[in-house]
């Protein structure tokens, strides 16, 4: 007797990714560079977030031929993005055999109110979050892995830092509440009460939480690990840099040895120019991808 698609199998898959770097790639060649550099998984996309920003218009699930090309090129797991609430895109990705689906605010949402009911799928999902309420709602919908939203495609770490600190601060707050205070916390954060009780007991989320959205340098990746991330997603940073292979290797090592500052100094030498980056105040409301879902 065996069972597929159990919580343990779906969450366990993310556990195996811990301490690692998941890289955005748009073709087989980039996927191979990522694998060679030591990425634990790749995210197959049609465009990296910085280019999605530049292109404007509606961003959708990638052309399946790109995703397939990447799946055939590497033996590490391949993730792919579906639009928020786009049940069919997610089912298509599952049918293709993608290893993890990112229900992602980087793409234009298909549903501005509801997320996908992810616990009905055999394939595991990762979702973005900015606070404990979003984290808890996504987990209860069936997400097996979380990531901070940050602000994708900006090369600016400030939002990822804000979200990681926010979530961790709220977990500590929750731990300090007496049991009879948790219901009001649940109300204020619009989070399921029983899940909050579980988080309060364990002192951590029941799934792995990576950092994403603005990581542009090895030091950025190390900072997010320092702040308690289980691993990092690097989107536009790597293949928008001058020497992607070297950059990718440096990010992987900085993530493993995030508290070895001498090493990070060495890794950061002569990497060429990192992506240019954007200041948050230059983004208007609808350019802030993190606000596309709650």
């Amino acid at each position: 007797m065996s069972q597929t698609g159990t919580d343990r199998v779906k969450r366990g898959m993310a556990e195996m990714q811990k301490g690692g770097v998941i890289m955005d790639v748009v073709n087989a060649e980039q996927a191979k560079i990522a694998e060679e550099a030591g990425a634990v998984a790749v995210m197959a996309l049609e465009r990296v977030p910085a280019d999605i920003r530049a292109a404007g218009g509606v961003a959708r699930m990638a052309d399946p031929s790109i995703t397939e090309e990447v799946m055939n090129a590497v033996s590490i797991p391949v993730m792919a993005k579906a639009r928020i609430g786009h049940i069919t895109e997610a089912r298509v990705l599952e049918a293709m055999g993608v290893d993890y689906i990112d229900e992602s605010e980087v793409l234009t949402p298909a549903d501005e109110i509801y997320h996908i009911k992810k616990d009905e799928y055999t394939v595991p999902f990762v979702c973005g979050c900015r606070n404990i309420g979003e984290a808890a709602r996504r987990i209860r919908e069936g997400a097996s892995m979380l990531r901070t939203k940050g602000e994708p495609g900006t090369g600016n770490i400030v939002e990822a830092v804000r979200h990681m600190r926010q979530i961790n601060a709220e977990i500590r707050q929750l731990q300090n509440l007496s049991e009879d205070e948790v219901m009001v916390f649940a109300r204020d954060h619009a989070a399921p009460f029983d899940l909050l009780m579980e988080i309060r007991e364990e002192g951590r989320l029941p799934v792995v939480n990576f950092a994403a959205g603005g990581i542009a340098t090895p030091a950025d990746a190390a900072l997010m690990m320092e702040l308690g991330a289980d691993g990092v997603f690097v989107g536009s940073g790597i293949f928008k840099s001058k020497n992607p292979a070297k950059f990718a290797r440096a990010i992987v090592e900085a993530t493993t040895h995030y508290d070895d500052y001498k090493l990070i100094g060495e890794l950061s030498k002569d990497l060429g120019t990192a992506m240019k980056g954007m200041e948050m105040s230059t983004l208007t409301g609808d350019q802030r991808m993190q606000e596309r879902s709650e």
Binding site: S2, G5, M16, D99
Partner: peptide, 27 residues
């Protein structure tokens, strides 16, 4: 055993170690 969607849990007998061991197989 295949890709992630084929990952599974099963009960195993491990000789000299454990009967009915809940084993989690991931890729």
């Amino acid at each position: 055993f295949g890709r992630q969607r084929d990952s599974f849990e099963a009960s195993l007998n491990i000789e000299g170690v454990a009967d009915d061991f809940n084993a989690v197989f991931i890729r």
